[in-house]
């Protein structure tokens, strides 16, 4: 007989697979699945056990135009990745040659956007980047920011911390670079998730020790666009950034009203 604790986890995993685990509870459980093998195994059990209800059903042929749309979407991703890699490599080359003082930090970090790509020379590079662990990706981005900051003459343009907001596939969604002195936060949208017309993504600073959250503002929704917001507090006082799904105008409260979907660790950058 399973213990009450095991039964709770079994039921939680079962509800996750059924689909009745929703909202923040589902988001939290998905985060647990990434780090807890036992919870992951319980989910595998339920996926397998309930699969006849999905697998042994009367099949319906999808319309003929669906597959071409899939391949077109994949090719568009590949083309975008190729262009991003080329732009990032060009930026790096330019910075090496000129001392690289004025290139926006966030442009360089575009190269760490880890979407999988295939069938081209750039794919190999992307595969290499994709296989990097999150921490390594962030560390690499921090190194790049640090390198690019070195020749900057004005302290006001220098980031002292960066953050990459990732989704569950470890794809980079937004890159944030902050300056604690000026309280400026530069945000570049890399691959912002699609929203409905009435929705927005709101950025929050999460304080340590469960001390609550503070709103920073709404995130840019178009890939490639950059926004500058004012930090409500120093990044030193925050544990991490979090992104919630909200109505178009953002949360009407001082806390998220929608699910918290993504987070980004704050990585201090050593400046000379």
């Amino acid at each position: 007989m399973d213990t009450p604790d095991e039964q709770w986890w079994d039921a939680q995993a079962g509800e996750y697979v059924l689909g009745t685990l929703r909202g923040a509870e589902r988001d939290v459980f998905e985060k647990i699945l990434k780090v807890d093998q036992e919870a992951f195994n319980r989910v595998l059990f339920w996926q397998q056990a309930l699969s006849p209800m999905s697998e042994n059903i009367d099949e319906i042929e999808p319309p003929h135009y669906v597959f071409p749309k899939i391949t077109a979407q994949i090719q568009a991703q590949q083309a975008q990745a190729k262009a991003s890699v080329k732009a990032a490599l060009d930026d790096t080359t330019n910075n090496s040659a000129t001392g690289g003082s004025t290139t926006p930090l966030t442009n360089t970090v575009v190269k760490t956007s880890p979407r999988r790509r295939r069938s081209s020379r750039s794919n190999r590079l992307w595969k290499g980047l994709t296989t990097l662990a999150t921490a390594a990706t962030i560390a690499m981005a921090a190194l790049l920011v640090n390198t690019l900051n070195q020749p900057t003459s004005s302290a006001t343009t220098t980031a002292d911390s960066i953050s990459i907001v990732l989704n569950e596939q470890k794809e980079s969604l937004w890159v944030l670079s902050a300056n604690s002195d000026t309280r400026e936060l530069h945000i570049t949208a890399l691959n912002p998730p699609t929203l409905e017309a009435h929705q927005s993504h709101q950025l929050w600073m999460v304080k340590p020790d469960d001390a609550g959250v503070t709103s920073v503002g709404l995130l840019p929704t178009t890939a490639g666009t950059t926004t500058t917001l004012t930090l409500p507090m120093s990044t030193n006082e925050a544990k991490l950034f979090a992104v919630s799904l909200e109505v178009l105008t953002g949360s009407a409260l001082a806390v998220p009203t929608g699910p918290v979907l993504y987070t980004g660790s704050i990585i201090p950058v050593q400046n000379p």
Partner: peptide, 27 residues
């Protein structure tokens, strides 16, 4: 895809949403 599409149609009750979801799922 015939099995997955049938499952999505049953879940989303819409051909349009099921097609869209099938596309995104295969990507």
């Amino acid at each position: 895809s015939p099995q997955l599409f049938a499952m999505l149609r049953r879940l989303l009750i819409s051909d349009e949403l099921a097609e869209e979801a099938l596309q995104e799922s295969f990507v």
